[in-house]
Each structure stands twice: as C-alpha cells, then as structure tokens.
C-alpha cells in the first residue's frame, strides 16, 4: 500500500519526511543501515509457503467486538485542557494552521 513498499530497501529520507523528522546526513546513513537490517530480518517470512492462507491482520479468531450505543460522561473541560501548552475559550491553542 505504501508508495515504495516494493523497493528493496527503505528510503529513510522519505520516511523521515512523512514523520516530520529532520535527519542529518550521518543520521540518515545510520538509520538506513539499521532499517535495512530490520527489513532483511522480516523478509525471512517470505520464505514461508502461504499458498491458500487468507491474509489477516490478526492472529486471534475474534470478531465483532462491539459496545452498545450509550453515552457516558468523559473528562471535564478543565481536565481535558490540563496538559494543554496553551488554551483559550475552552479550546486547545496550537500554532496557526497554514493549509
């Protein structure tokens, strides 16, 4: 699903950009090596014969875990904003969103 998932190695600079991280050249090289190592390790899975096995995101055969539609009290406004770096009029205040 990811745009470059079919590539042999991970593009660390691209991943860093997606994660809004600034890497210098040394870090980029370092992480590239480590990430390639991880991907290589996980690649061992491709040696398995999974012919006829349904893809799944979960190992446990559990489904339909629901809750009933009942409203419950949550946090008070004061509690919700307790950790906010800035607040005004009951809202979290963040740097101006440019988009």
């Amino acid at each position: 699903m990811a745009s470059n998932s079919d590539q042999q190695s991970m593009d660390v600079n691209y991943i860093a950009r997606l994660a809004r991280m600034n890497l210098d050249a040394l870090e980029a090289r370092q992480f590239q090596t480590q990430m390639d190592g991880i991907v290589d390790y996980v690649r061992q899975l491709s040696e398995l014969d999974v012919e006829g096995v349904e893809p799944t995101a979960h190992a446990a055969p559990i489904q339909n875990v629901f809750r009933e539609d009942l409203a419950q009290p949550g946090l008070t406004q004061e509690q919700a904003l307790a950790n906010a770096p800035a607040q005004s009029g009951g809202q979290f205040i963040v740097p101006k969103i440019v988009e």
Binding site: A86, S88, G89, G90, Q91, F92, I93, V94, P95, K96, I97
Partner: peptide, 9 residues
C-alpha cells in the same frame, strides 16, 4: 482559525 494561532475543539 484566529489571527496568530488556531484553536482545537
């Protein structure tokens, strides 16, 4: 959106 910042609810 405010002049110098944005609020989140």
């Amino acid at each position: 959106h405010f002049a110098t910042c944005s609020g989140v609810d």
